[in-house]
Amino acid sequence: MIQIREATLEDIPYITTIFRDSITHVNAKDYSEKQIRVWTSGALDIDIWKDRIMNSYFIVAELKDTVVGFAYLTKGNYFDGLYVHKDHLRRGFGIKLMRIIESQALAKGYEVLKADVSITSLPFFEDQYYLVEKKQKKNYKGLAFEIYKVYKEL
């Protein structure tokens, strides 16, 4: 049974592991080794993860008391992150996390949810009725990453 709850600071080791492993194993087909290395280095900045948990709507998905995914919402209607453990993909965790994030934005009075998504996750978001606003390059630690700005009317 999937349980969704708000993240706590104690979840950071699980969250950063999922973040790193997801990028390494799932996104590797769409990004270079150097891009993967730079992107996964974001797992090491614990202060940023603490800030996200304390200042965002940040939720985790659990299966048998093990964190298997997470998502977070910033600025009220910016879907800032969605990651599911590589061994738990295509089991409904991502969709459940997404629906709760969407519900939270709607409850706060927003009619549109926005996100920047990777090449890898674009098909998942499109399958959930997100529309591409534009394709763009995003600079992260000196490297350009191809991403998509998407939105969904709630």
Rank of each mutant, 00 (worst) to 15 (best):
I2H: 05
Q3Y: 06
R5P: 02
A7Y: 08
A7N: 00
T8D: 01
L9P: 09
L9W: 10
E10T: 15
Y14G: 02
T16N: 04
I18G: 12
D21R: 14
I23E: 10
I23L: 15
V26M: 05
V26K: 04
A28L: 02
D30F: 07
S32K: 08
E33R: 05
K34H: 07
I36E: 01
R37L: 08
T40P: 01
T40W: 00
S41K: 08
G42D: 03
G42E: 03
A43S: 08
L44Q: 15
L44F: 10
I46A: 08
D47N: 03
I48D: 10
I48W: 03
K50W: 10
I53R: 02
M54C: 03
M54V: 04
M54S: 04
N55I: 05
N55M: 00
Y57S: 05
Y57L: 00
Y57A: 00
E62S: 01
L63G: 00
K64Y: 13
T66N: 05
T66D: 01
T66F: 00
G69M: 12
G69H: 10
A71V: 06
Y72G: 02
K75Q: 06
G76W: 05
G76D: 05
Y78E: 09
F79A: 12
G81Q: 02
Y83P: 03
K86F: 13
R91L: 14
G92P: 09
G92A: 14
G92H: 10
G92N: 12
G94I: 07
K96H: 13
L97M: 10
M98K: 13
R99S: 13
R99W: 12
R99V: 04
I101M: 15
E102M: 13
L106E: 12
K108C: 07
Y110E: 08
Y110P: 11
V112N: 09
V112P: 04
V112S: 03
L113T: 14
K114A: 12
A115M: 12
D116P: 01
D116R: 00
V117Q: 11
T120G: 06
S121E: 13
L122R: 04
F124V: 12
E126M: 14
Y129S: 15
Y129K: 15
Y130H: 13
L131N: 13
K134V: 05
K135D: 07
K135M: 06
Q136L: 07
N139F: 00
Y140G: 07
G142E: 07
L143C: 11
A144G: 11
A144H: 14
A144D: 15
E146S: 04
I147R: 04
K149P: 01
Y151G: 09
Y151K: 15
K152Y: 08
K152S: 06
E153P: 05
L154H: 07
